[in-house]
Simulated assay, not measured.
Amino acid sequence: MKNFSKGQIEDQLSKKFMQFEREFLGRGPINVKTDIIRDMVLVRLEGVLTKAEVELAKDLDGILMVKSMRSKLLENGKQYLTKIISEVTGCDIVSMHTDISTKSGERVILIKMDKVLFG
């Protein structure tokens, strides 16, 4: 990590999250943007909903199902994500938080690291 700039690490993380979405969840987002803020990594994924999820999310029950399912899938992939984060940053994950908009198809993931990456 010491030989890489903040932008290079953010780019590497974006690529790894794109790969995670494709390999672990079966479908990749249209775009991924990652920002490192002190000891946090903020990942924004655009275009993550499948056509079936868009249809399902037309009422409140469906919205809650999509949000719950996506949250559970991310939790199930935490070991994979922990490995990605560690390889790219040299840090461990303290906590991970996520939400998805069923209107815009955008997902955000906030990861709290065990140390400050860039002050």
Rank of each mutant, 00 (worst) to 15 (best):
I93C: 06
K2T: 10
H97F: 13
M113Y: 03
K51R: 14
D114I: 10
Q8T: 11
D114R: 13
N76I: 05
I85G: 05
I63V: 15
I111D: 01
E55D: 10
K16Y: 02
I9P: 04
V116G: 02
K83L: 03
R38T: 11
K2M: 12
G62F: 04
R70E: 00
L74S: 00
M65F: 15
E87C: 02
D59H: 15
G90E: 05
K83C: 01
K78Y: 09
L81T: 01
V43K: 00
K16E: 09
N76W: 10
F24C: 07
E87Q: 11
T82N: 11
I93S: 08
L64Q: 13
A52K: 14
K16I: 03
K115I: 01
S5M: 10
I109L: 09
K15P: 00
N76Q: 14
D114F: 11
E87K: 09
F4D: 08
S104H: 04
L74Y: 02
E23H: 02
Q19F: 07
V88E: 01
F118A: 06
E10M: 07
L117W: 04
G47Y: 06
Q8K: 14
E75R: 12
Q8G: 03
T102V: 15
P29T: 01
I37T: 12
G7F: 10
A52W: 08
R27Y: 03
R44G: 05
M18Q: 08
V116R: 12
G7S: 15
L42I: 15
D59K: 13
I84M: 07
L49W: 08
V41A: 13
G105V: 00
G28H: 03
K78D: 05
K67T: 11
L73Q: 13
F17L: 12
R44Q: 14
